[in-house]
Design a protein around this nucleic acid. Sequence first.
RNA 1: GGGCGAGUGGUGGAAUGGUAUACACGAAGGACUUAAAAUCCUUUGGCAGCAAUGUCGUAAGGGUUCGACUCCCUUCUCGCCCACCA
Length: 806
Amino acid sequence: MSQYNFKKTQDNWRDKWFDNNLYEAKDFSPKPKKYILAELPYPSGAQLHAGHIMRYTVPDVYSRYLRMKGFNVLFPMGWDAFGLPAENYAIKTGVHPEVTTKKAIAAMKESLKQIGYGIDWTREVSSADPEYYKWTQWLFLKFYENGLAELKEMPVWWDDVSKTVLADEEILTTKEGVKISERGGNPVIRRNLKQWVLKIPQYAEKLIAGLETVDYPDAIKNAQMNWIGKSDGANIDFKIDQQKVTVFTTRIDTIYGATFLVLSPEHPLVDQITSSEQSDIVKKYQAQAKNKSDMERTETKDKTGVFTGAYAENPFSHEKLPVWIGDFVVMSYGTGALMAVPAHDARDFEFATKFNLPIKQVIKPTDDTKVTLPYSEDGILTSSDVFDNLTSSEAQQKMTEQAENQSFGSKKTNYKMRDWIFSRQRYWGEPIPLIFVEPDGHTEEVLDLPVILPSVPDYTPSSDATSPLARNTEWVSTKSKDGSPAKRETNTMPNWAGSCWYFLRYLDPHNDKEFASMDKLKYWMPVDRYFGGAEHTTMHLLYSRFWYQFFFDIGLVPNSEPYQWRLNGGLLLGPDGRKMSKSIGNVIDPMTIAENYGADALRTFICFIGPYTDTYPYNENGVRSCWRLMKNIYELKDKVTDGVEDTNVSKAYNKMVKNITSMFEDLKMNTSVSEIMIFTNQLKDVEKIDSKVWNGFLRVLAPLAPFLAEELWQELNHYTEWKNENSVHVQPWPEFDEKILENETITIAVQVNGKVREQIEITPNESEDSVKQKVMLNENVLKWTQFREVVKFIYIPNKIVSIVTN
RNA sequence: GGGCGAGUGGUGGAAUGGUAUACACGAAGGACUUAAAAUCCUUUGGCAGCAAUGUCGUAAGGGUUCGACUCCCUUCUCGCCCACCA
């Protein structure tokens, strides 16, 4: 018996496949297309890590299956090559990030080939390649030209370790309420800086509407909806002497219960309305709030605030309401001012209780249940003048109408989503292709793209919020279109920029006239299946939808949603069940596993471990069992011969093909591996295996274990030299015969009063009468039915009999 | 505080209204071996029983149904996301 040498097998077929580009996706092929996409990796470190294997294995198995099913499959790969780790490494060592990145890319590409991912490498792209980022810059300029990119002075999150601004999405809040950076966990502080922003809130409605047309799990849709944070309500003006303050409310129906207003301490009106008696105390509070970091603001659960001495008139009830300021009201949402209805809002209730302000109930429940305040549900209005007895929603409509008719308010929709801060004060990113023309400093586009990222002697970020590029004075000074002196924008784009459109470049990677041709976009888009990480739900996945929707609006792409379908994958934990971490020392290196057990065993293990979406601890014994499976399959080959007839094997074979076909369609790779194991165990028990069965089995095996399947396929067919069309991976997916699966008899269970008491044999589609006769005379059934009256006899054909007695 | 998801053997998991625990790991016993590894065979949800079998059992409680891990309600626990967002 020959021994399975997985290393030799892998080395051999890997070169054959990739040297001949076996997995090429053909533009405009008459076959139906499938675009299978997995998030592109960041090329750090030397090689692949466990996360990549978890992310790419199932998509690869699936795309291999589709290819055999006759689809023109695009399964591409590229590199999200800009980013902090390479830059931080450069700061430490002085080696240019380009050098380290290229090295990492080469090593990772080699690893991806070793695992046997069926990637079309002719379409490889790297976001740090000038040929690529030329188009990232070009696309950015489309935003600029259409008023969606804007320079804006605003409070931003500043990472004080990395010395750069970060977007809202890149900030996490710890359990203690401390704000930190998502990458690196560095402390962040608030700073006012002038930044490029992309006005993603303008696409809020389209981003919401688009979710209805795509097939994403509800969890992702919910998270994006939540992040966009749409609230329908109204802006209402309250008069304060000659001034007026506008508040945003989603509950205008509670306005008769408003007993005070609260303004953000930074609200511009505060200085004008504060009475002279309150002036000192207000100024002191404002100063305190300003010095308080956001961390401290959120840390103190206790509400604080001070009275301004001013009173505002409720436009409905004409009551005079005291105006307070409080730092729980943030300037960046709504109007920075709110009407407090302590009876119907928990925060207002807390504030009113603390400062002894009146609490007035104006909503009662629709039924007679007693309420404890604060009661924040909808209900029936009371103590609300002419609006009494209306429901909340009726009142909201009528009151908003009245406010609009009398010009003291209007319907208003607010979003939690903010402008996307798009400048980074770092080196290793795409230069923003704009210049500031002197003397007035107005911005102008750079027409000659790409703006190449210049070399600098020193990558260290500066604490004065300028980019390392700013120190390259020669590069910074340039000329405008009409020859005026100008200075370059020295900030770079965030890491997310390149990945917002990479899936479009795969479609036309070598086009130097366009970012991608419309014909190719029309052929391939949208992405049919997109696999990625859950951490990108409100970042990359939302950003790239925004870009794509905008491109659609300006006619650059053929449809409005980039991804038709999306699934988030889980993680591989260390053997101890904890997240892999160098400091804990529980990091599993997939390439070592591949080295020890073979790429096929590793792939099969990753599939077998459980559904794609879940997270699992690593288990070495699990890999060993898959390695054993490979070995067992290999050893079966000596039993293969022509003309073996075996009904049991034939049945098992057809069942396996049938089951795996539907499991692959549903991406249930874990149970597919079970089916392979069950069938293999069966083959181990027979003397001889028919070559036709073996032929089909190898094709079913091919997506999961591409190397082993290729080895045995080539041997079975006695191929002596390599030809692409002879590869197992381009063979048609095997058919199965339902007829062979039909048995002469079926065993079904008999339940008496819900408990299984007997199993009987019936012929397929046997009549109810005949089955009933068999069942009612059965001795084990009689034990439970005699001396009782059979009230009901239920027969579900070919499945079960259920008897009810009294 | 809000939203979403999940709870099944010692472990990863299977079963989406029809015989709960497929497949695999681990464990126990046995075969082979001087021995070990590897390999092979047997057993493996709890309780009672030599066994046939009975009985309980999918976080807890209730409901719908001939029949519920699966659908509905209540509670508990865990995970993830968001969070003074008016």
